[in-house]
């Protein structure tokens, strides 16, 4: 065996972890693949049913309700899964830190990468299915939609990196994250339009970077979409980059403690 550069070592660790995580994620549960598709479908069905009963009108900001909802939900799930999967990433791979090549940050990065890929496949399947059903879920600005999608992914990565350290050091953090994931779904405007919220309150909701990601994604999908004022990709990227930096710094600072526990 010959000498390997640090980059080669890191790459083979990522490759090994990716294979492991991909198998665990898609085959651990017999219905793993099924749930990936069924969860958003069930959510869309329930919301459409509720909306049919409660309110009138099928348009939100000039866009059909169903594609609007799918777009928001998938965007939110992309963020949420990156955050939730990262929380358990360090603890689930603790045994593998016995090999010095594997660092606590590696499983988090690999999980976020894998989760992003899976969610992208789900999005593509949804776009394909809705094209066939004539629902009109097709990005009008393909590059822009891709950019917004990647932005949400990066935000999830930043939150994931940060929370993966915190939840390993303080186990309660993981529980709190699980509790806030539902309220987060509501205040992020994934299924309830924020246009209906009073203006004063909107200003507070706009502090949440997920809103900016989801609304931008919708703007790139539907050219005629009337979004909230004050939606900014710059703010989203500032948050993402700040969180990614913070997460990486925490990983550097606490890598020893994450390994041992």
């Amino acid at each position: 065996m010959s000498y390997r550069t640090p980059w080669q070592v890191t790459r083979s660790v990522w490759h090994a972890l990716f294979m492991r995580e991909a198998i665990a994620r898609t085959t651990a549960d017999r219905f793993a693949w099924f749930w990936m598709l069924a969860e958003p479908i069930a959510m869309v069905t329930v919301m459409v049913a509720i909306r049919a009963v409660v309110s009138s009108g099928h348009h939100i900001g000039g866009v059909d309700f169903i594609p609007w909802l799918i777009c928001g939900l998938l965007g939110f799930y992309l963020f949420r899964e990156n955050m939730m999967r990262s929380v358990g990433a360090v603890d689930a791979n603790k045994a593998l830190f016995a090999y010095r090549q594997v660092r606590p940050v590696d499983p988090v990065l690999v999980r976020c990468y894998l989760e992003g890929l899976l969610k992208t496949i789900v999005l593509l399947l949804f776009i394909l299915a809705s094209q066939l059903m004539g629902l009109g879920l097709m990005p009008s600005d393909l590059l822009g939609a891709l950019f917004a999608w990647v932005s949400l992914w990066m935000l999830g990565l930043g939150v994931g990196l940060t929370l993966s350290v915190l939840s390993s050091l303080v186990p309660e953090v993981g529980k709190i994250v699980r509790i806030i994931s539902l309220p987060l779904l509501i205040i992020s405007g994934a299924m309830i339009p924020l246009n209906f919220v009073p203006y004063d309150l909107q200003q507070y909701l706009l502090l949440n970077p997920i809103v900016h990601g989801i609304e931008s994604l919708r703007m790139f999908f539907f050219p005629s979409y009337q979004t909230l004022s004050g939606i900014s990709m710059t703010f989203l990227w500032l948050c993402s980059l700040a969180l990614i930096s913070l997460g990486l710094m925490l990983h550097l600072r606490f890598s020893m403690r994450l390994r041992i526990q």
């Binding site: 065996m1 390997r4 080669q8 070592v9 083979s12 660790v13 490759h15 090994a16 972890l17 294979m19 492991r20 198998i23 665990a24 651990a28 791979n93 045994a95 593998l96 016995a98 090999y99 090549q101 594997v102």
Partner: peptide, 25 residues
């Protein structure tokens, strides 16, 4: 070192993992 195994993975998968980490693809 028996502690370096991931309990939910099979023996074969663990061996594969370690081989990949050590760059012996």
């Amino acid at each position: 070192l028996a502690g370096g195994f991931q309990g939910s993975m099979t023996g074969r998968q663990n061996v594969k993992f370690v081989a990949r980490v050590h760059g012996s693809d």
